[in-house]
Design a protein around this nucleic acid. Structure first.
Lengths: 192, 192
DNA sequence: CCAAGAGGGAACTGATCGGTACCATCAGGA
DNA sequence: TCCTGATGGTACCGATCAGTTCCCTCTTGG
């Protein structure tokens, strides 16, 4: 059935890259863990770098779909809805396999800021910021764009902190900061 | 003169590791750029991993000495002095060779949280948090410990954001959040 | 029933990895 | 003066890297 091998390759690569790092995982590992032959690999991808980019694209889609889901099921009020990001992060941090943000990790590992992988990673963050911006605008926050970037910065700070500490606590800390931020931010029309 | 070669090795390794990443830099590069012979390298260090740890230790000392300096020359009032961290970060972000935090980068590159390099990196952050904690306590903030961790999280968030965006702007954004945080935090005795 | 395409296995390339061994050189102290 | 210790250069080791090539098997559709 057509692209079965390709799917297995991407699945194995995504997991291994996230768990051990891109440079740390050789083609051999991806092949053995996916059960795909060496020739088939290069039939689907010109090089390892192309796998990296494709894995990141997949992960970008998955991650934002997951975030949308967390936002959709959140019981928070419109003005508190942006905090759903931190509720979601708290879940992720508690996962056993959590090892930070794949996109941040990629940018760190791929030193070259002009590399395709770096671009995909940067674009992902901008898309997440766009989601936050929409949420904040709908929540009535006047300076929603600036606020969105501040919340994203907080989220990234929470992620690297969680990696360092090895506990989910950072999500709570970041959320507390975010709450202060939202509480002191100006909102359209009436005041409480 | 005794340990001349060792010093040159550490200098070259520190620069190369930061600019290109630890895994990306081979022994060969460190040798050629430092002008040290291969045998001399292994006379001073049992393995590459030991160089990584020693480089991080050096950088920890240098970085905190630099932070202390920025704090010392800051003209901010005691209650605003913790913001000197973000003033300092703004300077670093503007540097051409800026490529994030060497300790965050090391933790990302070194997936294993039990590795010596990971530990040194984690300890560094705790020491920085201790500095912030002292500053906040001296500034009269009641919940200085919690506040210190929030500021550190903000700082790390600013760093990864600056790497992603390639501009120093994130420092300003993080500082704005920090200002809100300090302004709304409770301080001992009188209110303004 | 057979052809075609997709896939897996393995041998092989040249380059580079971290690390070892050996050797010639050059300094300084006895 | 000679000896010792630190050094730089180079050849080498086995392992692994990304990538190429060839061959055989299996499935599937005509």
């Amino acid at each position: 059935m057509a692209t079965n091998a390709k799917e297995r390759l991407l699945g194995a690569a995504e997991r291994l890259f996230y768990e051990e790092g891109i440079r740390a995982v050789g083609i051999e590992r991806i092949l053995s863990e996916s059960g795909v032959g060496r020739a088939s690999f290069y039939r689907h991808f010109p090089s390892k770098d192309d796998v990296v980019v494709e894995v990141l694209r997949r992960r970008d889609g998955m991650w934002r779909a997951w975030l949308d889901g967390r936002i959709a099921v959140s019981e928070r009020s419109p003005e508190e809805l942006p905090l759903a990001l931190f509720d979601g992060l708290a879940e992720r941090f508690a996962a056993a396999e959590f090892r930070g943000c794949a996109f941040i990790n990629t940018m760190v590992e791929t030193a070259d800021p002009d590399s395709p992988a770096h671009h995909v990673a940067a674009e992902h963050k901008e898309k997440v910021i766009a989601v936050l911006d929409r949420l904040l605008a709908e929540g009535g926050y006047l300076d929603h764009e600036s606020l969105a970037r501040q919340l994203a910065l907080l989220g990234d700070g929470a992620i690297v902190t969680a990696v360092r500490e090895g506990t989910p606590e950072a999500a709570v800390r970041a959320r507390a900061v975010a709450e202060v931020l939202l509480r002191t931010a100006e909102r359209e029309s009436v005041r409480a």
